[in-house]
Simulated scan of single mutants.
Amino acid sequence: MNRSRVSASLVSALGLTQIIGYGTLYYSFSILAPGMAQDLGLSLAQVFGVFSVSLFIGGLSAIYIGRQMDRLGAATIMAVGSALASVMLVLCAAAPSVATFAIAIILLEVSSGMVQYQAAFATLVESDAHSASRSITYLTLIGGFASTIFWPISSVLASHLSWREIYLVFAALNLVICMPLHVWIRSLGKTARGLPARAKPTVVGAVPPHMRQRTMLIVSVAFALLGFTLSAMLAHMVPMLGSIGLGAAAVVIGSLFGPAQVLSRLINMVFGKRLSPPGLAVLSAVLIVSGVVMLLMSADWLPGAVAFAICLGLGSGINSIAQGSLPLYLAGSEGYGAMTGKLTAARLAVGAFAPFAFASAMENVGLSFALAANAGLGALSIAAFVIVARSCRSQVA
């Protein structure tokens, strides 16, 4: 099997596991949360509080997971993660108490970090570092359909099954489909390592070693701030649009986010070859912040709300690509797993508190102030990405 066919098979297999991984472990939660709350005797806010804590702890675990990917191989971590996710889904489904449920949700989020984009990107870098940026774009294009597929699937299942039964179905998907695929991907890596043909290709970072720590710190802060802005908007998008007077149209407007996210990745795949990863990061931040500002300025004006959802989706789609390609571009492929683990930890840990913080701001100081403050944080991320982009240009010059 030649290299191009291996790459296409690898991306296709990872794409399927990303759809299932994000669909069962992340996107389904908002659909199933009301059933969880009723069954466990909790308020909906308490259920989402448990979820926020799990996101925070899962984010911190990304540092350790990243180091283990460099040590053991990303595909190995993904295979173990699929098995762990299956066990935790079963434990959630069988949870006899709130405490058991909370522990299972937290461990489920840890397993998510072992099977979602962080690990998938590292797998692509390990497979072929030179083509990894292009492969990451293809992978995010496929993975972008996770919400489009699993929101309706979860809704249909919820009308026929309890949330516990649905989690058992999801456990089977991770065990029967994702784990075998990850084991197969791991075997591809072992076969490639056994070939004596040529040395494993590596990518040298654009930033000199003495500047990398400072540069990656700036990048980490930028992704964390932008992640906060995006998480706050996604968590409250539909109810927020409804509260400003858009009524039933809020659901339709919110549904534009997913297609816009996929569209941006498709456009980048076809036309974005000339735009460097730092440029992609700046563009993603500008689009997300522009969307927030549009909603702030347009209030209940329907075209403004539509532009908000589309800009947010476009920016989010490009941001996912930048999360994988920018660290590779700046610091190279050596130690990629540990490096992205630190970035992911900062982004998820900060983003975990975004829904709660934004809700508190809306309740205490009003939606307009909350949107303005959120846009301000996003603007800081734009400035940070611009600093990184300029430093890269100065190195080239």
Rank of each mutant, 00 (worst) to 15 (best):
63 I>T: 07
52 S>A: 10
235 A>F: 02
334 E>A: 14
339 M>P: 07
46 Q>L: 02
165 E>T: 04
176 V>T: 15
362 M>I: 12
341 G>P: 03
333 S>F: 01
266 L>H: 13
132 A>F: 04
336 Y>E: 11
391 S>K: 10
253 I>T: 07
202 T>F: 03
255 S>E: 14
135 S>F: 00
247 G>L: 01
299 A>L: 06
376 G>Q: 04
387 I>H: 08
193 R>I: 05
396 V>C: 00
332 G>L: 10
74 A>N: 01
329 Y>C: 11
76 T>K: 15
278 P>Y: 01
149 I>F: 06
150 F>G: 02
129 A>Q: 05
3 R>G: 00
281 A>I: 10
207 V>W: 09
291 G>E: 12
392 C>K: 00
204 V>H: 11
252 V>Y: 07
73 G>V: 02
266 L>D: 11
261 Q>L: 06
36 M>K: 00
276 S>M: 08
382 I>P: 02
5 R>A: 10
317 G>V: 02
51 F>Y: 13
267 I>V: 15
234 L>I: 11
384 A>E: 08
101 F>S: 07
318 I>F: 00
198 R>K: 15
60 L>I: 13
19 I>E: 08
382 I>Y: 01
351 G>V: 03
314 L>C: 12
357 A>V: 14
351 G>A: 15
39 D>F: 05
214 R>N: 13
330 L>Y: 02
304 G>Y: 01
78 M>T: 10
111 S>W: 04
24 T>G: 03
